[in-house]
Design a protein around this nucleic acid. Structure first.
Lengths: 204, 204
DNA sequence: CGCATAGTTGACTACGCTCAACCCTGGTGG
DNA sequence: CCACCAGGGTTGAGCGTAGTCAACTATGCG
């Protein structure tokens, strides 16, 4: 949940951190904002996204409990993406300056941060790979595979509107809807409420 | 060029590093390979790419002198992408174990590594943003803008075949060709050999 | 000089987007 | 308790644009 077990944190950093509550739709920071802190999600759900030219929004990641955002700004003046709370959320705020100071003395902290950066990297790579799949039905199928393999299950429970999922995938809601009905018709998945079962089919 | 000025490196790491020569087309490591080292390009040009399902290749980054690859593997067992030399190249090899050991004692090293991870992150985000632009001509234009803004110039000198550039952009060579002639016809760019001039036009 | 490869151009196709209408659900207020 | 409304989800028709496949040209290298 926290960057490090609280009692292992240097005292000066322990004093600097705080928590913050966010309501749905509330912006934590905007891309371009001066970066003053790094955040770790305690509860709730944040969306990390970039608002591109021509006002499209590109979802970089959905950060849930234990995940962080704003790490890249540790070594860059400003945030490179925006973050918004999708539901009521609580985040831990680690002031950038205190963190940077503490880095030098606490190797554990360093390692944790690096790990987070690496994870963030891998997430982005996954996103890129998804976007590279042109055919919508394959992209969706692959997306479902990622989700299930991460959870070690064969189903996905969507806790967010399909509309959102669609844009995450770079699709329109209409297209996603069509794709899902098609996949179900073909027997690749079965749907039930917000739950989608993946049949381990040979369909690629 | 190096991860750190050589004389500032801890002696045990200094002894562990080596250099390696690569010929065009030579694979440095493959995605899925056990990660044993991190590499910094001394001379030449490497392509970091992911081979997706259905044998498409997604270029993550072109690493040139001073840039690195394999950092993400510092905290993961295996490499998450492949790296190939596009031309004759020379890389510095930093064994992972030695690096991890040295991290604890040399804050400078840590900072350098984190910086590299952050840069890698931003590069990936840029890629994603590009891919999100559907219209090929806009995507290409934006790509040219990124390149020129990075170089502080108004032209781009392609040292690699357009064919490669096309796939980097997620386009086919045919489409890229058409787009370039169109952009030139519309006056957004002018071409001459491998050089493309960007007219600061209002065209978006 | 001849070959291999990159680049260009054309005709056709496929697929996701747009825009629109419609259904369905959950929440609200009378 | 029902009427209404708003939003998400679904479905349809038509369009635009990048892909595909192919032919052809240009270029560089042996």
């Amino acid at each position: 949940m926290n960057l490090l077990a609280l009692d292992r944190l240097p005292i000066e950093l322990r004093e600097a951190i705080a928590t913050r509550r966010l309501v749905p739709g509330q912006i934590l920071f905007r891309q371009g904002d001066l970066a003053t802190a790094l955040f770790v999600v305690e509860t709730g759900r944040l969306k990390l996204f970039r608002q591109s030219l021509e006002q499209r929004s590109i979802t970089l990641q959905i950060a849930r409990s234990g995940e962080s955002c704003g790490e890249t700004a540790l070594f860059s003046e400003v945030h490179s993406y925006s973050t918004v709370a999708e539901i009521v959320s609580q985040v831990v705020v680690y002031p950038k300056q205190s963190l940077l100071l503490a880095l030098h003395q606490y190797p554990q902290l360093t390692e944790d941060l690096m790990r987070r950066l690496v994870v963030s990297n891998l997430t982005l790579i996954t996103q890129l790979e998804l976007r590279d799949i042109r055919a919508a039905h394959r992209r969706v199928l692959q997306y479902l595979r990622y989700l299930t393999s991460a959870e070690q299950t064969n189903f996905v429970n969507f806790d967010r509107p399909l509309k959102e999922v669609a844009t995450d995938l770079g699709l329109t809601p209409a297209t996603l809807s069509r794709v899902l009905t098609r996949l179900e018709r073909e027997g690749a998945i079965t749907r039930e409420q917000n739950v989608i079962w993946l049949q381990n089919s040979a369909i690629t």
